[in-house]
């Protein structure tokens, strides 16, 4: 029973971590607060759903197509809007403005989806067999979700750690002003963060669509959880986001098991408020670390 719960918590947490890492990549580099992040996941989920339903494209192929589309969207948004905004505005104003812009984008994306596809929840079945091992029973889709999240996060971490470009991105997250001086290509890092950040959100959505009904407004809760996680792990702290995602996933699973689904949101927001008030730098961050 405990093992079962821990496993479910880890799969949920892995997806949260995937969303939070991508959210943090965007915040850490550009200081943009993307409250439309969950909506990118929604777009990925619809892509996966329609490809499967209309063209019989299996979801694992969508795991490549969905991030490509949402990554392209990220590229266009960066080139078209945020590159200019970041040149004009500095400091706290960036965060405030970006929040409002992303809120606007979120309204456009959500309601366009609603106009195009209606509000009807849509679902499809794939990888829905049940696997049992060591007393744990779990659907294949959850296992696949866990695997995809681990691979995607691992790839991002490896890129950041081992490539020279990744070093630049990490330096930028640490200190933007100093990075520009030592010759780091800020524009590349921003483009990278936009494309990869949005692509991972789309990927998360494609994965989620295997086991959750797709609706135009499914993204909101994921955005909220994403923010809860990155506040827990520290804004801009990539490793913190991974641990934070797993913590929230486990906490949520345990909370539902202990108290019932009604208290799930109360629990999440309660933890969130407590962390923000007591340790606004995150559970694992140091003061002024970012």
């Amino acid at each position: 029973m405990i093992a079962q719960l821990v496993f479910v918590g880890l799969t949920t947490g892995a997806i949260y971590a995937l969303i939070a890492v991508s959210l943090n990549l965007i915040y850490g580099t550009m200081r943009l607060l993307n409250i439309g992040h969950g909506d990118m996941a929604m777009v990925g989920a619809y892509i996966s759903f329609w490809l499967f339903t209309l063209a019989d494209v299996p979801p694992y192929v969508s795991f490549l197509i969905a991030p490509a589309v949402s990554g392209l969207f990220g590229l266009l948004l960066y080139r078209g809007m945020f590159a200019g905004l970041l040149r004009r505005v500095q400091g706290d104003a960036v965060e405030g403005s970006s929040l409002l812009v992303f809120f606007g984008i979120s309204m456009v994306v959500q309601n366009s989806a609603s106009l195009l596809f209606s509000g009807t929840p849509r679902a499809y079945r794939y990888f829905d067999g049940i696997v049992e091992f060591g007393g744990i029973a779990v659907t294949e889709s959850r296992l696949v979700a866990l695997a995809v999240a681990v691979v995607a996060i691992g790839a991002v971490l490896a890129f950041l750690k081992f490539s020279i470009w990744g070093l630049g991105v990490r330096a930028l997250i640490q200190n933007r002003a100093a990075s520009a001086i030592v010759g780091i290509n800020v524009d590349f890092a921003f483009t990278f963060a936009s494309v990869v950040g949005f692509a991972l959100a789309g990927l998360a959505g494609a994965v989620i669509s295997m086991y959750q009904a797709v609706t135009p407004f499914m993204g909101g809760p994921y955005t909220t959880v994403g923010f809860v996680v990155i506040i827990l792990g520290g804004l801009g702290n990539i490793n913190g986001a991974i641990i934070g995602g797993l913590v929230v996933g486990l906490l949520e699973t345990a909370g539902i098991a202990l108290t019932g689904p009604n208290f799930r949101d109360l629990l999440i927001y309660g933890v969130f408020i407590a962390v923000l008030m007591l340790r606004p730098q995150g559970l694992f961050g140091r003061k002024g670390a970012h």
Partner: peptide, 9 residues
């Protein structure tokens, strides 16, 4: 709501 979003942006 779409127009609201565009106006905001």
């Amino acid at each position: 709501t779409v127009i609201l979003g565009v106006v905001l942006v």
